[in-house]
Write a protein that binds this DNA or RNA. Sequence first.
DNA 1: GCTACTTTTCGAACATGTTCCTAAAGTCGC
DNA 2: GCGACTTTAGGAACATGTTCGAAAAGTAGC
Lengths: 220, 220
Amino acid sequence: MGRPPRTSRTEIMAAARRLIDRDGWETLTIRRLAAEAGIASTTLYHHVRDKDDLLSQLLDDYAEQMPRPDMPADPRERIITAATVIRETLAAWPWVVEVLIQDNQTGRAALWMVEKLLDGAIECGCTPEQAVDLYRSIWYYTAGEILIRAGRVHRRAENDHPARRDALLRAADATELPHLAALAERWATLTSRDTYSLGLRNLVDGYLRNLPDQGEPDRA
Amino acid sequence: MGRPPRTSRTEIMAAARRLIDRDGWETLTIRRLAAEAGIASTTLYHHVRDKDDLLSQLLDDYAEQMPRPDMPADPRERIITAATVIRETLAAWPWVVEVLIQDNQTGRAALWMVEKLLDGAIECGCTPEQAVDLYRSIWYYTAGEILIRAGRVHRRAENDHPARRDALLRAADATELPHLAALAERWATLTSRDTYSLGLRNLVDGYLRNLPDQGEPDRA
DNA sequence: GCTACTTTTCGAACATGTTCCTAAAGTCGC
DNA sequence: GCGACTTTAGGAACATGTTCGAAAAGTAGC
């Protein structure tokens, strides 16, 4: 009972996607979204806790329609694949940043990939506890990579504002920081390469090799 | 020439620290900071590009006074130590989150730790390029851990708002997600443990063992 | 049909980060 | 000393996320 709703969560999500597709996600504001949905701004807050919650739900809706790739037979490769798919999926939406830092647990829609990851880890010889540890490490690594990469893009071009220190590395003292100074020229190039899968593989390898009990399940 | 400044960057930083120490960092707002410094809000923007820049400078100032621990002799342990110190230092201030995602490059004050890390990596047999790769992987992992951990704390207690999905894992379908379902009870416990150094060690080990040229410098 | 009761909707208002424009307060050339 | 010039200071105003309280719009009991 009570007054019947004139607005549904689904309508709101649809309006949000329309707005994002049309004008870009940066222009997605509560008031604009309300206008697009034909309701008052404050009405939104009956269907959504706050803006982070809105983005979180939006991400879930998107992720739901994501194609689920078939997994390789090798369990270690399954771990790699699952992590890579998570990363690729999240990196496609810049506003994922706002969600990730608030909604730390991976959303409902990504659970099946966590499952695949745990499954691969266990088949590689992990105990369930170790599998969770490996998952968490991978998630930290992945979330950090996404956030930092998104930050780099999202960052406005550094304007010459007062009290702004840039050319951070060029000022590197050659006697105090010899390696950094030596790398200063190439730093931008080196740090803009995509080394996600390299790091991921090394992380997974390090984990699986350091298991207390057994080593690798497939003899190399 | 020009009108002489009545306000200095140093005063602003001092006022900010006073405010944070007294009332907590959540109450650090531009207007309150201006009031504490005895100036108008808009005057702040002559010394600071925006709030993120303010926090970033604040972090640098803090980090500058951070004690620099002496490094162990073993190069691999130096890597671990440097990373751990970075993590510990950053994790001490909750507002670090806002800075990290914007100011992706580690600040000026943390450069010496990056240097130590590169140094350890190179002494472990890395080329400079590989050392940078290792650094970046560690940085992703560390940043992700900090952000997610801070997010968990920073998160307001989940109130029972409509359209809020919680008990994420308890709803795990036992047939679709067997491992997650099996772990559901213990999930909260397992994911609240501090596994940073475990993951860090495995990551570093994986990297150093996978170097194309040589293996481990110190024979185990 | 009328009266509780419940839920949704929304206008007003607030705090915050930020920008724009104008006024103040000096220095420099003379 | 005086007018250009330059830099800082600050008031007014705007967009945004969000809260509060009251009005609207139904349902259930009688």
